[in-house]
Amino acid sequence: MDGKKLVRMANEIAAFFAVDPARSTAIEGVATHLQRFWEPRMRRAIFAELDAGATAGMHELVVAALQTHRQKLEPAAS
């Protein structure tokens, strides 16, 4: 999967949840959305971007969601 494209998609998800005044709610919103709608290989690919340090173009809520909710978001090994 195209990691950069996935980062852009995740940023758009974050832009929706960012309006919530409670930061933790926004982070959880991003994480839950990724969990419920992103197929495992997409989640693996965005974690690969995160782990490769490609966070410069990542919305800070995406970074926080991936880091805070890694356990529930990271798919089991295929």
């Binding site: 195209d2 197929e39 495992p40 997409m42 798919p75």
Partner: peptide, 11 residues
């Protein structure tokens, strides 16, 4: 786990 959506299938 959720599956691929059409645009994701293309990717």
């Amino acid at each position: 786990e959720p599956g691929l959506r059409i645009p994701n299938m293309f990717d």
